[in-house]
Design a protein around this nucleic acid. Structure first.
Lengths: 172, 172
DNA sequence: TATGTTTGTTTGGCATGCCTAACAATTTGC
DNA sequence: GCAAATTGTTAGGCATGCCAAACAAACATA
């Protein structure tokens, strides 16, 4: 056994993520459910499961239920985390609708490395923490991209509101 | 000829983008240069070129120079635009170093659809246009993710500077 | 418990896309 | 113009990953 490679193809990452999700919902993953989720036929799933088992990421015996190993869980959790972070950025910051955020996140989660994801997390945090931004700044973004007319008075009001809120949060 | 399909694999998108770039630099793309850029052997390039030619995205005759067709240019320009936008976000907003921004952008450009890219463009615009954000807000982000200690006085100063700048930009 | 339905596996085939290595065309330099 | 170097193509192989369809196991229930 020279195998048990760490690096996963995008496809296998998808399988792992799906199993992770099914395990949470149903305690256990089944071939049919994986196939349905990923939109492939059951025969294709069996092949992928063999790969994952070879890499020691899942517990798999023919005809048995499927569960993640400790190692598999760790990796799947990370993939799942990426997915959630990216989706949150697309949905809550960029204001894409849920479905589009989901499909984009599904592909982007394989394309960003750890450094990029971690920085994105900090960026999202920053937007919500910095007194100059926050929820209303994001709301104003919707105005910006839909109307395309940033009226001066609106900016004045917005700035005032922002400053007021900051001053009110002043420690006594 | 039922072929000339529109949808491109990630790989073919990479070939197209590379040819686009080489064309700009050298007027014309050559097999060797494409191979070098993409880190594959020349034999692999020939196969890809046949695919692209079949889809009418490049002008290709064996042993001749390679150029993009009108259709190929349109698609390549869009891929290249995506790449530039994503890289700019990673580098100028998230403050990732150039190399990391580049490698992430290379993968992400295949993962984001037009709606997501267009919204990202607007978001970057917004950051630079909105008086509440701008260049110094991004600079402060660097502070945020490196120090992790957002001192109250710093926020006060930052808010003041922000407001002052806004008022100074007031139309007479 | 026997039987039909559902679920899982196997096999063979196909497409993509890479490699190696042999071969062919082209270009370069003398 | 011709040999040598460079560049491009072809052919055969391999890995991934899908499908279709035949087959096998497990389950459900009458």
């Amino acid at each position: 056994m020279i195998h048990s490679n760490t690096s996963l193809s995008e496809n296998l990452e998808d399988y792992l993520e799906t199993i992770f999700h099914l395990e949470k919902v149903n305690k256990v993953a089944r071939v049919k459910d994986i196939a349905d989720k990923l939109g492939v036929l059951r025969g294709s799933v069996t092949g992928a499961l063999k790969s994952l088992a070879e890499k020691e990421l899942i517990n798999y015996e023919p005809y048995s239920f499927i569960t993640l190993t400790r190692k598999g869980t760790t990796i799947a959790r990370e993939i799942s985390r990426r997915h959630a972070i990216i989706k949150s950025f697309l949905k809550d910051v960029l204001q894409l609708d849920g479905e589009r955020a989901e499909t984009n996140a599904c592909r982007m989660e394989h394309a960003m490395d750890k450094a990029a994801i971690d920085r994105l997390v900090q960026f999202i945090d920053y937007i919500h923490t910095c007194p100059r931004t926050g929820a209303d700044w994001i709301t104003a973004f919707v105005d910006y991209y839909s109307k395309k007319t940033p009226a001066r008075e609106k900016c004045d009001q917005c700035m005032d509101a922002c400053m007021t809120r900051h001053l009110e949060s002043q420690p006594t």
